[in-house]
Amino acid sequence: MSILLTMIPIALVYATPIVIAALGGLYSERSGIVNIALEGIMMVGAFTAAAVTAVLEPSTTWAAYYGIAAGIVAGMIFSLLHAFASVNLKADQVVSGTALNILAGGLTVYLCQIFFDQQRTNAFTTGLAKVSVPGLKGIPFLGPVLFMDVYSTTYAAILLVLLTWFVVYKTPFGLRMRSCGEHPQAAASMGINVLAMRYTGVIISGALAGLAGGAMVLTQDIQYTLGSIHGTGFIALACLIFGKWNPFGVLGAGLFFGFSQALSIYAKDIAFLQKVPLDFFYMLPYVLTVIALVVFSGKSVGPKAAGELYDAGKR
C-alpha cells in the first residue's frame, strides 16, 4: 500500500505529458488530420523549453515558465509544416508526419550544436518547480499524494481534459470541428471553412504537444537530448486510440500508461513483479494498444474522415 502511494506521484509525472500530447492529437484528428508527428513536435517543444530555461535560469525564477511558453510557440510553428503539407498540398498525412518526426530529431540536435556546441542543450538546475496546494495537502492519504509537491503541469493536464471536453462537445466550434473530421463535404456545404478548421486543429495539437514536450523535459530530465522524448509521442498516439478519441478516455488511458511506467521502476520492490523483466513493462502500452485496436475493430470509434484527402468535389 505504501508503495502504491509513493507510486502515484511518479505515475502522475509520467502521465502528464502523455495526456497533454494525446489531447493535442485529439484536436488534430477530430478536425480530420492524422498527426503521427506528435513525437517530433514534442521534441521541438522540449528542446525549446529546455534551451530557454537553461539560458534564462540565472536571471529569473520564472525561467521554466518562459521555457514552457516558448515550447508551446515552437510546437505551433513546427506543426504549421504538417498543416501546410496535409491541408494545402494534400500530402499523405502519415508521410508528412513521418518526415516531421525525422526532421525534429535532426533539427533539435543541430540547433544544440549551433547554440551549445554539443549534442544536447546545457543543463538547467531546477527545471519546473513542484507546487503544493495549501489546505488540501493536509487531507490524510490523498493530500500528500495529490496536493503536495505536484508539478503545475499535472494540474494543467487535468484542466485541459475538462476544457477539451467542454470545447469539443459543448461549443459550436467543437461541433464544427468534429463535422470536419467526420464528413468534411457536409461541413463545407454548411459554409464551414474546412481548411481553416483543420489548420486550427493541427495548430492546437502543435501547441499541446509543444507544451507536453516542455513539461516532460522540465520535469523528467536535466537537459534536452535526442533521447529526451523517447517515444512518448507515440505513447500519446496510443493513448488517444486507447481512449477512443474522447478527452476522459484519454485521461484514463494516460493515467494507466503513466502508472505502468511507474510500475517498471517499483517492480523490484514488489514481490510478485520482481521476476518480470523491465522491458516487458516498457512494452505494455504498445501491446495493449494493438490489442485495443483489434478489440475495437468493426466499431468505428475514430473520426471517419481522419487521414483522408479532402477533395471538395467528392460527394
Binding site: 503539407a85 498540398l89 494534400k90 508528412s96 516531421l100 526532421l103
Partner: peptide
C-alpha cells in the same frame, strides 16, 4: 521526404 509528400 516532406517535399515528396508535397507531390501535388
Amino acid at each position: 521526404v516532406l517535399f515528396i509528400a508535397m507531390k501535388l
